[in-house]
Design a protein around this nucleic acid. Sequence first.
DNA 1: TCTGGGGTCCTAGGACCC
DNA 2: TCTGGGGTCCTAGGACCC
Length: 419
Amino acid sequence: MFALVDCNNFYVSCERVFNASLDMQPVVVLSNNDGCVIARSNEAKALGIKMGAPFFLNRELFKKHVVRFFSSNYSLYGDMSCRVMNTLQQFTPDLEIYSIDEAFLSLNGFTDLAHYGQVIRATVKQHTGMPVSIGIAPTKTLAKVANKIAKKDAALQGVLDLTTVEGIDSLLETVAVADIWGVGYRYAAMLQRHGIINACQLKNADDAFIQKHMTIVGLRTVHELRGESFIELEQSPPPKKAIGSSRSFGVPVEDIEELLESVSDYVSRAAEKLRRQNCAASTLQVYLTTNRFKDEPQYANCISCTLPTPTAYTPELIACAQACLRKIYRKGYRYKKTGILLTGLTPANGLQLNLFAEHRGNFSNQKAIMRAVDALNERYGRNTVQFASSGINKRWKMLQSYKSPCFTTRWSELPTVKA
DNA sequence: TCTGGGGTCCTAGGACCC
DNA sequence: TCTGGGGTCCTAGGACCC
């Protein structure tokens, strides 16, 4: 038996915990670079503001309805997420943190699940200020469905235990296929063309048809809708197979020196994550692109290179990335974004060396340097020490004009209470 | 002026091996 | 007339998730 606990409008709710003036108001949180709307309060949804709507195209609407807006504040959201997950941990030993705002709980052996759900919900609210909804069912996919219904139907008070529902099919008939976990807009359109419109119809669809059009993954979804559990609880996350970093620029960039700075910066971030996972990368990919929304000359390209020996040593990765960028850079374009991707990740202990490469690097020195850099940044904050090749002024860095304080992670930004 | 970022999995096709 | 069978590995593309 699974419970899916999902925070309501998570980023907006994080902002509200420390800013009571946002209650009952239309509030949105913007993507990086203050580009798109990526979280909306219920009041903002009611105004018809769409997920992913470009901010600059909606300025008038925002002004008219006094919509409050914020840049993404991931330090705050990450910390709030930890608080919520720590609270959930008290309720079951078996928990899977599925995303920044969601967790699956195993409730095998528990009784009176709907009531237990209410206790969980009230406790999370009391301990963290975060409103959550909970769906309970014998499969993860059905728990997702139940969660969605619990969120919409106010009478349920945020919790739906699907096992207590009589005639589950008539409930599934009210759920559109596009709202099912694992069915994106392309599969939804394909299913609709074949007359499969709601969750009940998908549940009763022909196995061979589903496997042909939606692969084995889609077939699993269908079986889960029938109550047969195929997707298990994953308690410890498997190591990542790829680590990437990319950003859109705050302003168009033409100068190769600035582009070189940006890839150096992104490589540093990715390499940090790589070392945290105790891995080394064997392949590095670099890409760059102009702004596809602009009516001006377009250029995008991508290149990957295999490292002589897998490495997590930032200077070596930076040198490789910069050499790659020089190969695909073309003069005379206004670039919008660069990015890098590390793949072929292997455990850092016991690396396979290259028979033909010259191993000039002193591996133990490299490790010691990276340990020192990581420790300094861990203790004193990101970029306390950074590579000079990442630039100092970073004219290209993304916009974040409307960011709230890091209420919970910076001494200088703690909220104050006035008497 | 202005349109996000970070991931996973599956399949088909092409290369290779004996 | 007639040209096998059984595999692996890698990559690109397409779907999905938050």
